[in-house]
Nucleic acid binder design. Structure first.
Ligand SMILES: [Mn+2]
Ligand SMILES: [Mn+2]
Ligand SMILES: [Zn+2]
Ligand SMILES: [Zn+2]
Lengths: 156, 156
DNA sequence: ACCATTATTTTTAGTAATTCAAAATAACTG
DNA sequence: CAGTTATTTTGAATTACTAAAAATAATGGT
């Protein structure tokens, strides 16, 4: 059985060391922040790290390096949503192949459970001779608040 | 004196005028090029337009303007594929809600017919109170050529 | 066909997201 | 605790795209 870590810091530290990465307070703080603010962009993570005085000296370039490294070892998942306001977003919920629904107006993102739970959860009618890795599904929608806003605008 | 077959030029001209847009040789040439090279990026369209001396004076900014305008009136479809080295791609096959399979290594993109043919072709387990517009499906894969290349690299 | 109107293209700059490389810093090892 | 070197910081570059003003050309009326 897996022993429960005393704190989330211990948990992340163990995961980092397992992968041969050093345990820095920047990485730990980033993981905390992403865990509490899923689907954040590098810029948002950066602001959250500075705002709470967690890592006042951190730079945006460091955040990019961190999310790249942590994604590479499977501690984070990167999601690329469509739209020209395209900044990659990151989350700690990995390994369950879940999907996302995005409001095309305000960019709000919510999780959508996968029916199958592992990739690929959907099969193409034709693979064109390729080896399928994953079916990436993104639901585009308009959230309730934006619907109301749009209705007002249409009225005027 | 029209170097292009009158039929396709006439077709696009009619579509443009229907939408109140002027028929410019830049727009016509762009539509031709995209029709013959589906899933091209603005940069690729730009190079294709200059290469064949079709529109030697065209600029990349113009291509961006054209694809934006033509997408807005439904003559083109814009596809945003995942992977951060990915520029938006454009195609003339519109209105059938088809999907795509992309090689994650070389970026090759092929069409995948939609089982339903119109959006949304898939329903989320939870809409989170949002009004669903579309289920965007992208299959990530490794093409045959890339598979062979990767096998060689692993060997060495 | 000619001209006027104005949409479109071109020219010139600027922005946002991300990457790269060298120098400074700070984790791990012994 | 000191040495090694991964990581962060600093500073600059790149890519994809947008913005605004000046030049050009497509349409409509004569
Ligand atoms: Mn998620
Ligand atoms: Mn297609
Ligand atoms: Zn919204
Ligand atoms: Zn390939």
């Amino acid at each position: 059985m897996t022993p429960e870590p005393a704190s989330s810091t211990d948990y992340w530290s163990t995961r980092l060391r397992e992968q041969g990465l050093r345990v820095t307070h920047q990485r730990l703080a980033a993981l905390e922040v992403i865990d509490h603010h899923p689907h954040s962009s590098a810029e948002e993570i950066y602001r959250l790290l500075k705002r709470a005085q967690r890592v006042p000296t951190v730079t945006l370039q460091t955040v990019h390096g961190i999310v790249n490294d942590l994604t590479a070892i499977g501690l984070l998942r990167r999601i690329d949503l469509p739209g020209k306001d395209s900044a990659a977003r990151y989350e700690t919920r990995v390994g369950d192949n879940h999907h996302h629904i995005e409001c095309v107006r305000c960019g709000r993102v919510e999780d959508v459970d996968c029916a199958r739970g592992e990739a690929p959860c959907l099969l193409p009618s034709d693979t064109h001779g390729m080896t399928l890795l994953e079916a990436q599904v993104t639901y585009l929608a308009v959230c309730h608040e934006c619907e109301l806003t749009l209705r007002k605008e249409t009225h005027a």
